[in-house]
Each structure stands twice: as C-alpha cells, then as structure tokens.
Write a protein that binds this DNA or RNA. Structure first.
Length: 467
RNA sequence: GUCCCCAUCGUCUAGUGGCCCAGGACGCCGGCCUCUCACGCCGGAAACAGGGGUUCGACUCCCCUUGGGGACGCCA
C-alpha cells in the first residue's frame, strides 16, 4: 500500500507557522516512504473562506518548497458526495433526523454548564418517532453513535487513545441547510482520496475519536493517525499574532531563508539524536513519525536566526547576491547601478558571515552603494572628527593615492606602513578610515572595504572628511 | 465542569532500567584571536516538577499530586 498524506488547511488566513510544520511533516513522511502528499482546501465554511487565503497557502507552500500531487481539492465542491454518505447512514439506521433548534441546543448547553454537567447533546431525537417532527422545521442529520463501549485510536505519535462512548454525543453530519459538517467531510474525503496517513495538529486528537466512529459505522477502514504537538509562543501560551508568529511570508519578509525555516520547523518536535542541520535530502532519508516528541514546543526566534545564518553562509553565493540585491532594491527604492552590482559579489563573502537575515545582510551591504556624502552614524561621525582624525585621513588619502596594487595585500602594506610611520597601532588609523569609508564603526576588514569600493570611490569618501 | 494529551538546562532536545553526580544545540557569561563588527576556537553557569511505589538498581516502568496544553458548535 502506498503512502498518501494530505495537508488540509482551511482558507481563512495565511499559512501560519503551525500549518507550515504540519505540511512539512506530511510532505517529508510521504517522500520518505515513496508516496505523495495531497492538498485539500477545507472551504466548507463559506463565510470565512477566501480566495486570497487559498492563494496565500499556495504561495507559502511553494516558498517552502513543498509540493503536492495533482490539483488542490476543494472540499466545498464535494458537498454532494458528503450528503450522499449522510443519507446512506440515515437509510441504514445509523443516523437520524434531529429537529432541535439552535436556541434549544444552546439552552441545553447553558443548563448543563450551570448544573456542572458535560455540555453534550442529550440525544432527545435519537429514538423519537419521525412522526413527531415539527412541521416546517428542517432537520439536521446526526450520527447514531454507540452509547456503550470504547472507541480507540492507535495514534502513531500519541499512542493508544481511548474514550468511553458514553462521553460522546451524537454529532451533526449534515446541517439543516443540507451542507456537510467538517467531521463528515473530512472522513468522506480522506476515504475517497485513499489517504493512508492523517498527520495533523494535536488539537484534532479528540476529533479523531469521533471520526473513527464514522469510519466504523460506514464500514470503512480508517487511516493511520498521527497527531503532532502544537507549537506555542515563547511564553508557552498558544501561538498568536502577538508572538510575531504570523504567516510564513512574515518570516520571508524578515529575511529568513526557506531552507532555514524548514530545518528549524523540522527540528522543533522531531529529532535525530544530536543532529541539528539537515538538508532536504537528509531530512527525507531520516524522517519518520516515531521520532516525533509528544510535548508541545515553543517557538524560538534566536534559534531560527542562528540556523538562518548558517544557511546564509553556506548557500550558493551567486544566488545569495541576487537575493541581497532584491532586498537592497526594496529598501532604497531604485535599481542598482552597474558599479554597485559589481561590488556585491566581491563583498558577499565578508558580508554573509556577519548577517543573520537577508534584511541584515542588505543593511550591511548599504555602504557599497554610491551615495556620497555618506550619512554618518553617530559613532562614526565622532571617529572621523575626533582629535587628529582629519589630519590622519589626509595622510591616508595621500598614501593610498600612491598604491599601485589595489588589492588586499597591496592595501594592507600601504596602511600598515602608514600606521608604523606614524607610530600608531593599526586600530587608531583603521577606525577613522572605516568611519569615513562606510559611515559606521563596524564593517568587514578595512583592507577589504577599500578593495570592494575601489580606488576612486575610496579616495573620494576619505576626501570628504579630510581637513 | 467533563473528557483527552503532555511534563529533562531559559529554549529545542538526546536518553527506551545500570554506559548519566544526565549529552548536544541555541541563547547567556568569561577568555583567546583581532583594525571594528562578525566568524572561529577554548572554558563556564544552567535541567530529570513533587510524592509514593516496582526493582539489587530508576530520567527511564506503575500510581497520585501539581503544572501546562487541547477538545467539548448546524467552525474547521
């Protein structure tokens, strides 16, 4: 039997981080077992579903590099089939019409709550004569679920989970307007799509028990279930907007690489002994459900950033230059000149190990752009004005003017030579130079900076601060 | 309230009865390197929630407590 998994988000917002991890696990599991993942959009709630959310989900998955087999399936489009199954259950006496009104139901819950009883539907229409049906009142169809015994789910992550049937009420299968509920739709779809493994968030664990009852009553074989623990915010509470854990696109905008997010999400709740870094091929080879932890985990941005800096340093440099360029263009709002673009690959090696995100990378690359006179950060301004700095810069200007080999070694010789001649430690000369050259007090090595900028630009920038 | 799930350093985790006075990673602290910032390297502080069992021996098995999370919709 081949492995078929599915990712089934409801299109009511972006692809959030928990959903992204669920998708990743489904994808990885399918790949590992030589199967494939399906995408199903759970859009039966017409009021809350939007086309924009569907697009956001597609884009999020694509950005993460997760693909699915075939066309995405719209759950709403399958409503007729869901209704058919509900009526089949009804005809077989495994479901019944219930004429309770919403008000009646909420009153029932209120009283139960007040009396400290469980807030379940009491089954008042379960065995009632259909002849007693109130006229003009459309009924819902409820499952006639077993009232004794236990329903068990062998969860691949959580182990054996059992709930006494007396704990559960008769769930609604088909609403009064004839549309299916989520419980029915999920079961029918997973069955029809031949899904072999349902991998989803822990919040569905108790749903699995109820869904199991539908499978049983239909005489269908239930899929394997794997309920993965939820991701919490840094404070341990449920992940919310407040935590900055938004859609995956928010991480993209923060300058996180998809490879880094994938690695981070995978390691969150899953482990392979002490290993921390996995590329996709390695992840596919190693991933399996038995190594998933059972407890919820907290989302930790610093660790994500650490991973991101790793991927920044190891990724293809040409591709990284392109990403950095795009980021720069986005921040300055204009295209780069040819000279500016040419400096990027020169400097990338030095820049990339100083950045944790793409945004930071672009920021550190800002000094490569032509925009004299440079805007000086406060500390840099002090360096360039302090004491004998202007005089020193004039000497440096003269000295560099005579450099014939404008490369790292040639520049190092010249600058070190000047420092020696002046009886200064290199730092005393390098700092004012750095400030004049970059407008900041921190940058890659000073010889490199000179080299990246080239003779003309370097001399001009120093010239701006000479006396 | 009822039901279900979970519980190792601040965080992610290794650990499936003796290899553990608990290992790795992130973060944090100190040092080295050094023209700044990073990188790198070296070192440090930091955890088995509590209580009962079982056992020659429990982080590992069982029970209780506590704490956290989830579910109880004609939402998904």
């Amino acid at each position: 039997m081949s492995v078929i998994t599915r990712f089934a988000p409801s299109p009511t917002g972006f692809l959030h981080i928990g959903g992204a991890r669920t998708a990743l696990f489904n994808w990885l599991f399918a790949q590992h077992h030589g199967g494939h993942m399906l995408l199903r959009i759970e859009d039966t709630d017409r009021a809350r579903s939007t086309e924009a959310a569907v697009t956001a989900i597609h884009e999020g998955l694509e950005w993460l590099g997760l693909d699915w087999r075939g066309e995405p399936i719209s759950q709403f489009a399958r409503a007729a089939r869901h209704g058919e199954v509900a009526r089949e259950l009804l005809a077989a006496g495994k479901a019944y019409h219930c004429y309770c009104t919403p008000q009646e139901l909420s009153e029932m819950r209120e009283t139960a709550k007040a009396e400290g009883r469980s807030m379940r539907y009491d089954g008042r229409w379960r065995d009632r004569d259909p002849g007693e049906a109130p006229a003009g009142q459309a009924p819902v169809i409820r499952l006639k679920s077993p009232q004794s015994g236990t329903t068990v789910v062998h969860d691949l992550v959580q182990g054996e989970v059992k709930v006494g049937n007396s704990e559960m009420d008769d769930m609604v299968l088909l609403r009064a307007d004839g549309t299916p509920t989520y419980m029915l739709a999920v079961v029918v779809d997973d069955h029809d799509m031949a899904v072999s493994h349902v991998i989803r968030g822990d919040d569905h664990l108790t749903n699995a028990i109820r869904q199991r009852q539908i499978y049983d009553l239909m005489g269908w074989q239930a899929p394997q279930f794997a309920h993965i623990p939820l991701i919490h915010g840094a404070d341990g509470a449920k992940l919310s907007k407040r935590h900055g854990a938004l859609g995956v696109e928010a991480y993209r905008d923060m300058g996180i690489l998809p490879a880094a997010l994938r690695n981070y999400l995978l390691r969150l709740g899953w482990s392979h002994s002490d290993d921390e870094i996995f590329d996709t091929a390695q992840a596919v080879e190693w991933f399996d459900l038995d190594a998933i932890g059972k407890s919820p985990s907290r989302f930790d941005i610093p660790k994500l950033e650490n991973l991101n800096s790793h991927y920044l340093r190891t990724m293809d440099e040409v591709a990284l230059c392109a990403l950095c360029r795009d980021q720069l263009v986005a921040t300055i709002g204009r295209a780069l000149s040819e000279t500016e673009q040419d400096r990027l690959p020169l400097a990338m090696g030095a820049l990339k190990e100083r950045a944790k995100t793409l945004v930071e990378l672009a920021d550190k690359a800002m000094f490569l752009l032509d925009n004299r006179p440079l805007e000086m950060e406060e500390k840099a301004a002090a360096l360039v004005q302090g004491g004998d700095a202007p005089g020193l810069l004039a000497k440096a200007h003269a000295c560099l003017g005579g450099v014939t080999d404008w490369n790292h070694d040639g520049l190092a010789d010249a600058i070190r030579g000047l420092a020696d001649a002046e009886g200064l430690k290199l730092g005393k000369l390098a700092q004012p130079l750095r400030a004049a050259l970059t407008g900041r007090n921190a940058s890659p090595g000073i010889f490199e900076v000179l080299y990246f900028l080239g003779r003309r630009e370097s001399l001009d920038r120093i010239g701006d601060h000479m006396e």
